[in-house]
Amino acid sequence: MKNESWPEGYERRVLASVDSTLSEAGRVAPTLSGPEWILALEQTAARGRRGRAWAMPPGNFAATLVLPIDEAPGQAALRSFVMSLALRDAFVAATGREDAFALKWPNDVLLRGGKVAGILLESVGAGARLTHLAIGIGVNLAAAPGVGEVEEGAVPPVALKSALGTAIAPESFLNLLAGAYARYEDQFSTYGFAPIRTAWLADAAKLGEVITARTTRDAHVGTFVDVDAEGQLVLETAKGRITIPAGDVYF
């Protein structure tokens, strides 16, 4: 049953168990008439960025939003920032703690410096034509994966319950997240990326500090100075200012 605050125009399905909500999104996307949230209470083959495994202890949150898309892939990809803002708002609504959360480029949410949520975007379509965007979200609501289950050097995982004492069920968190996302999606569709970018930068982790950004080929050390109009990371390095379209950030 949908909560009374559930956003108009969005459908929802809740699955007891599935291999991956992202995989399910790819299977059902051609049958959907509009945006739909897919929530799974258990995932048996969850995945993160670049095919990495995503651990999901019981009670944690795993969902994918499937959006019909008729725009360039670069524009669609900016929804990682839209979802980051929605996650932040959902966390604040659940905890009342605006000071506890920060946004890590390109697609993580931090709680007191630890990773509490991650986002993964995948396109759905035939050939070069993008028909749907699947936005996968994993949140450590109840428990954090062990250190051995995350990549070496990555931000350590943290759980909402242990860090702040907030216990919330996945379906209740989905109600908060779906409402927040719908508001930011309306803003993005109406006004473009500029206000989303401004809001994201206001809560950006390590803005103005030295970080390391690793791409598939190189590692760059520099001061995190901006995110540009295309969502690229902007670093001031010893060799000058550079932009990084995709990569991983390490503190």
Rank of each mutant, 00 (worst) to 15 (best):
E4R: 14
E8C: 12
E8M: 11
Y10A: 03
A16Y: 08
S17A: 13
V18N: 00
D19C: 09
A25T: 04
A25C: 01
A25M: 01
R27L: 12
L32K: 13
T44Y: 02
G48Q: 01
G51L: 02
R52E: 05
R52A: 07
W54E: 00
W54K: 01
A55V: 09
M56A: 11
M56T: 08
P57D: 07
P58A: 15
N60F: 03
A63S: 14
V66I: 12
L67A: 01
I69L: 09
A72I: 02
G74T: 05
Q75V: 13
A76P: 10
R79T: 13
S80Q: 15
S80K: 15
V82K: 14
M83L: 13
R88K: 11
D89S: 08
A90K: 07
V92N: 05
L103V: 11
L103A: 06
P106T: 02
R112L: 15
G113E: 12
G114V: 01
G114N: 02
G114T: 11
I119M: 02
E122Q: 04
S123L: 07
T131P: 03
V139N: 11
V139F: 10
L141C: 09
A142C: 06
A143K: 13
V147M: 12
E151P: 00
V155I: 08
P157S: 03
K161I: 00
A163L: 10
A178K: 06
R183L: 15
Q187Y: 02
Y191S: 14
G192T: 06
P195F: 15
T198K: 12
L201K: 15
L201H: 02
D203F: 05
A205P: 05
K206I: 00
E209P: 07
V210E: 13
T215D: 09
T216K: 14
D218P: 00
D218T: 07
A219F: 08
A219D: 10
H220A: 03
V221H: 14
T223G: 05
T223E: 15
T223N: 10
F224T: 00
F224H: 13
V225M: 07
A229M: 06
V234P: 09
R241G: 13
I242F: 15
V249G: 01
Y250H: 10
